[in-house]
Amino acid sequence: MGALIRKEVLTVTIKTATTTMAAALYLLVRREHSLLNISTCHVLISKIFGKALSVASTETNLESSQPENKPKVEDEIANIRNVSNLPQRLRAKLSHVNEMPDLNDDKIQNNTRILRKIYAKYGKSSGIDPRIMWPLRSELKVIKEDERDWDPTFQDLVDKMKQKKLAEQKEKKEREERVAKNMAMMPKWIAEYHKREAAKQLAQNEQEKKKQKLLDEARDYYGYSITPQDPKFRQMIEEKALEEKKAKKAMKKQQKTERAQAFLQKQLEQKAKEEEEEEEEEEEKKNK
């Protein structure tokens, strides 16, 4: 049913394409055909068709005198048809619209990035000043300052690379020298190591011998062999240590007394000597 109405309305619009009324009718029916049934639609179309024809006859005279009237009306219709209610700058992007956005829009006017894009897309016909595509003098100043501060020059880069290389070479050379020096010392160090190891072994052997000797002594003392962990063994060692201590003390005491005796002896001898000397002196005086 919808298709039928549309077909009829289309024929109406073709017939009265120049008239505004028929176009309005087309829109009306196209939008609301679902609400109309076919008979009411026919009535409606025939009613308006008659009117439209009469209007067309009057308007044909008007059109010849005012040709600019037509696009204005079409714009109005287009406005009615535009149900999305999008702002022009966004509607312009839609694929079926695809027109240049309005440059008077604040969001476009203040956005250099978008203005550049518009110039790139529409060229000179966009009416934009092509100077917009280059940075402003103030921006250029900032760019130059940034480059000066952050981008090293070619000479700087090369110098740095050479320095780095030299440092690496120096480090390598130093390491090689250090290794050569140490390698020269190697036989000496190895000999020293072996000597140290031998001394260690000797000390260990002696320790073992001493331990064995103690164990032997313990066996002699108790009459049977015992382990070093045995408390009896420990007791024996303690006793022995005590004895040793005693002996040491006694020895020390003896040495002390000996030393005192020797000192006394010496002093007595000295005194005797002095007395002898005095006697001699007296004798000499007497002789004089």
Partner: peptide, 16 residues
Amino acid sequence: FFQRGIPIPKCKLPPE
């Protein structure tokens, strides 16, 4: 790139 409407940049030097 040309659709961006910006001048062709000058190429920077390689990094360190």
